[in-house]
Structure formats: structure tokens, C-alpha cells
Design a protein around this nucleic acid. Structure first.
Lengths: 202, 202
DNA sequence: CCTGTTTCTGACCAAATGGTTAAATTGCAC
DNA sequence: GTGCAATTTAACCATTTGGTCAGAAACAGG
């Protein structure tokens, strides 16, 4: 953090984190090996450990970076905006994240599946705090009759679940739709707009 | 399969599979160890390997058993039933499975996250076939105006995603709702009934 | 009982794993 | 270029891992 980095340090740390994201997102923390990450990064194993003190440190760094970008879309939900449009825009931003950052989504999914050993604090802290705040905003919109009544927390859960599904279960989605099928995201977006549009309609 | 099993064999194979489900569902295949499974099962490692030829065989057996029970709820979707009620009942059956068999749901999620190396054949085979069949039924209902129009496949995906979310991301759901909160399933069921009820309403 | 079969275990093995170290190589300011 | 710090690697280590094997216990059926 505080220390200034040389060009080489910056480049190699990025290379390592990128390779680690590849590996951790597919096999989870315990299922991944340093050799695998080193090979993916095109570096030697001792060289990895020159830049990071341990396997766990690499994983922790990835998760810590992730939490920030993960919360961004929700952060942008504007209490002063038009309620239905705001929620639909949030859903679209989340879906866009699944499309553009599927590895990050899977890294997160792996961590949660394993009981969130590394990021439970952030879940109960930052994530819960932001969710509480935005659920309150949504609740206000419902009470004002701007959108139809439903459970604000489960509404947010459903946005997370549905959008991340297209990253985490991508393999299944494509297999069921048929290998020859096109990109599933446009249809997904249209479907989700319909789904949430009807839910929120007054 | 064909061979008859002694009482001891049956009991121990069950014990092993149950312990393996605990471990595999939490850490994935590569993140799990035979020692861990043996310890959980209360058996020695060589004894595990007396009942199963390898770690992979245990995992394969679990996945194979899983596919059957996993498809059951969809199998029961009745083309002759009342469309909206049938789909909502299917959603409820899937949610019930997440509640009663969260380990199975996580085992499946882990497998898909890792690219479905073991069950890709079943995904492209049984699962796709059944999904195609039921999507066609739903499509028919839409064309007959029995339920509102939307994308049949993505409708099924959304049921899978939302219901399994309450098993796979249970830790996150409970953390965000607050540790003191009650069982999230009743609220989830009510929310999902509203969500799909409005989507399907004509 | 006795005997053959099933079940179980301690000891072991080769390979893989996370990590260390000392020495070699490279980059760079002067 | 020279000298020093930053970078890289070969060789190594202790532990863990999936799996084997020979024999010991437990369990039948007669």
C-alpha cells in the first residue's frame, strides 16, 4: 500500500493477481496450487513468493480488491432518482458485471460457498451496511407508492442471484441453450427487465 | 449396482457418502482430502478405499445420485395442469430442495463453477433434454395465452437461480439479514410467489 | 467350535504442495 | 562501465496427499 512500486513490481504483481484470479475462481482457495498460479502467470514459484508472502496473501488481496468493485453498482443506486428506473439500471449494471467480470463473480461465489472464511467481516460490515441503507431507500419508495410493495432485502437478493447466475453457471446456461446458441446475455437482459418491470409496476 | 450388499457394506457406504457430501460440498473436489472425509466419516482412510476405489469414485457416485433427485421437481411439472399453479408449485418444490438439501445444492454449484468436468455429459444430455421438453410445454402455455409471454428457458433459469441461491449463498443471506433474524425461507417463498405470480399474470 | 470370507488397520510409498535459502542474474543510478 | 539494489532461480525441505499392501480382527456358515 504505502510503498512506492517500481515498474517491474507493478507489472508482476498484476500478472500474478490476474493468473491467481484465473485459478482461484475456478478451483477455490484450497483447490488451487501455487504451481498452477505460477505456471499461468509465466513466473517461477519462488518468484511469486518474492512478491507475495504466501498463497493466502494473494487470495486475500484479490478478495479485498473485489469487495470494492462488487459494491460499486449498488452504491450508485440514487435515492433521488426515478425508483423503477433506478432499480432496473442497478440490475443492468450487475448483469454487465457478470458479463465483463465472470472470474470475479466466481471467485466471490467460491468464497461464499465455502462459508466466507476470509470475507465474513466485510459481508457483515460493508456489504450489510450498504444493503441496509439501500433496502431502506427501496422501502421508502414502496411506502410512497412509487413502486409495488415487496420485500426489499429479497428484492436485492434476487437481483444478485439472477445476474450472478449468468457468470457462475455460465457453463450450464450455454449447455442447456445448445452450444450453437448465441450469447445468452441479450435475452437474459430482456427477460430480467420484464421480470422486474412487472414486479415493480404499480 | 448389480452386486448385493451386506448390511455392513450398505451402512458404511452410506456413512462415507454422507461425510463426502459434507466435505465436497464445502471445498469442491480438488479442495477436499480423503483424510478429511475419513475423519468426518469416523473411518480410517484405507477403509474408505476398501469401499470406493478412489476419491474420484466417491465424488462421481455423489454426482450421479444427485442428478436424479435434482431433476425430479422439474419432471413433475404437469403439462395437463393449470399453468400458473404448475410453475409456482415447481418453484416451491425447488425452494424446498434448497432448504432440505443445501449440501446437494452446493455440491452441484461447485461442480458447475469448476466447469462441470464430471457432469457435462449429464448437463448436455438428461438436463438439456428435460429442460427442452418443459420449456416447450411452457412455450405452449404462453402461446395459448394461459400465462404471460416471456422467455421459457430464462424463466426456468431464474427459478433455478433464485431457489438455489438460498442454499448456496445461505451464509451471505443470513449475514445480511442479521444473525438474529429468523429463518429466511418463509419470506423468500412469499417474495418468489409474488415475483413469479406477477410475471405470469395475464 | 473351525474355517473361509469379509472387514479393518498400521506401516508404507511416490508424488505434490507451500514455502525457504543462498546464490546467480538483471536493472539502474552515477 | 561500476557498484549496489532489485529481481530471479535452482536446489532444497517438511508436510500433506492419494493410494497400496500385508496382515490382523471380526464375522459368518457348517
Amino acid at each position: 500500500m504505502g510503498k512506492t512500486q517500481t515498474r517491474i513490481q507493478k507489472k508482476n504483481r498484476e500478472t500474478i493477481l490476474n493468473a491467481a484470479l484465473d485459478v482461484f475462481s475456478q478451483f477455490g482457495f484450497r483447490g488451487s496450487t501455487l504451481d498452477q498460479i505460477a505456471k499461468t502467470a509465466g513466473l517461477s514459484k519462488p518468484n511469486l513468493l518474492y512478491y507475495f508472502p504466501s498463497k493466502e496473501a494473494i487470495h486475500a488481496e484479490l478478495l479485498s480488491q473485489l469487495m470494492d468493485t462488487w459494491l460499486d453498482p449498488l452504491h450508485d443506486l440514487d435515492p433521488a432518482g426515478e425508483p423503477k428506473a433506478e432499480i432496473l439500471a442497478y440490475m443492468r449494471r450487475k448483469l454487465e458485471m457478470s458479463r465483463n467480470f465472470p472470474r470475479e463473480s466466481r471467485l466471490f461465489a467460491n468464497e461464499i460457498l465455502q462459508g466466507a472464511p476470509q470475507i465474513m467481516a466485510a459481508i457483515k460490515g460493508e456489504l450489510k451496511q450498504l444493503t441496509d441503507e439501500k433496502a431502506a431507500v427501496i422501502s421508502g419508495w414502496m411506502q410512497d407508492g412509487k413502486i409495488a410493495n415487496s420485500h426489499p432485502y429479497h428484492l436485492l437478493f434476487s437481483i444478485w442471484s439472477l445476474t450472478q447466475h449468468y457468470a457462475d453457471f455460465d457453463v450450464q446456461v450455454r449447455a442447456v441453450l445448445g452450444d450453437s446458441a448465441n450469447d445468452p446475455f441479450p435475452d437474459a437482459e430482456h427477460y430480467l427487465e420484464t421480470l422486474f418491470g412487472k414486479l415493480l409496476a404499480t
